[in-house]
Amino acid sequence: MAENNHTLWYEFKKGLWQDIPPFRLVLGTCPTLAVTNSVINGFAMGMATLFVLLGSNIIISAIRKYVAPQVRIAAYVVIIALLVTVADMFLAAFFPPVSKALGPYVPLIVVNCIILGRAEAYAQKNPVLPSIMDALGIGIGFTLSLMTMGLIREILGFGSIFNIKLLPPSLFEPWIVMILPAGAFLVFGALIALVNYLSSRKAAEADKA
């Protein structure tokens, strides 16, 4: 297994911008589009994903030397499914309203490409500590992405942040479209464009320097 020489800090921070999952890697778009109509939902979904990602990265990285390569995907999927079920039950037991709002999307974390993607691309080739940093970085990046989507959609769609009304209804008429899937696509597209624009400008500046 090739182990690279990046610092732990690098492994963490790459998930926050350079490889931020929905906008740069365009991974995990299903929850990004489906559950981000408020900041809270985005946060909860992000945290659930972070939990599963962290757990799967730790376990897979720990057992990476003992699993036969032919059955590794099967084993990983079982582990991920376990973690997802635990997360789902946890939410249903302690946060029933959140669980209801997220609907089927928590169980769907099983098929979120980020989880298996990180397992395949990272955890199975690296020791536990960097894998933890990788999971934290990617997971927090994902959570921040969902929260950004949720923030924009909640402000425009409900006129509120964290369910607190910002303006009286007489001053702001909420954009219903932002709560609908169409609004998710609009915001998602705009954010991808923004992230691309910012990084291309960054790259241009780096070239100049």
Partner: peptide
């Protein structure tokens, strides 16, 4: 169409 989705009542 955007307005229709945004302000369905109005």
């Amino acid at each position: 169409a955007f307005l229709m989705a945004t302000y369905p009542v109005l």
